[in-house]
């Protein structure tokens, strides 16, 4: 089987598509947990770009950046989910439109 190399553009394109899907999910969904997961999807797409450029420049730095993104995502998930728990405890709803009490 001949080994066909993959152009790096394909990886970047995939990353862009994933990022846009994540952004769309962030904008159109109502469930606070799903919105949060869309953010994670965008972070993942960005990580793919970092690793791809790391391949292009033959440097390990992109890997380190994506590692830091993961660490920050972990911290963010811990705090974010605690906030979601608190919101649910106080309002018993997970729909973001129902917690917009600062409006007006």
């Amino acid at each position: 089987m001949p080994n066909v190399p993959v152009p790096l553009n394909y990886y970047l394109t995939l990353s862009a598509i994933l990022f846009m899907i994540g952004a769309a999910g962030f904008i159109i969904r109502r469930n606070i947990i799903t919105v949060f997961m869309s953010i994670e999807l965008m972070l993942n797409a960005v990580n793919l770009t970092f690793v791809t450029f790391s391949y292009q420049f033959r440097q390990v730095d992109g890997h380190i950046y994506s590692f830091f993104v993961m660490v920050v995502a972990a911290a963010e998930a811990a705090v974010g989910l605690a906030i979601i728990l608190t919101v649910f405890k106080n309002r018993s709803t997970l729909t973001i439109d129902d917690v917009s009490s600062m409006k007006n």
Binding site: I27, I28, R29, R30, N31, I33, T34, F36, M37, E40, N44, M70, V71, A73, A74, A77, A78, L81, I84, L85, F88, L94, T95, D97
Partner: peptide, 28 residues
């Protein structure tokens, strides 16, 4: 390890804990 094994387990845990059901009007 970090994403699939820790962060998503937390998400799953919270979804199961709050017993979040289907969204009523998922689209805005």
């Amino acid at each position: 390890v970090v994403y699939a094994g820790a962060i998503m387990v937390l998400f799953l845990f919270v979804i199961m804990l709050l017993n979040a059901g289907e969204e009523r009007n998922p689209w805005k």
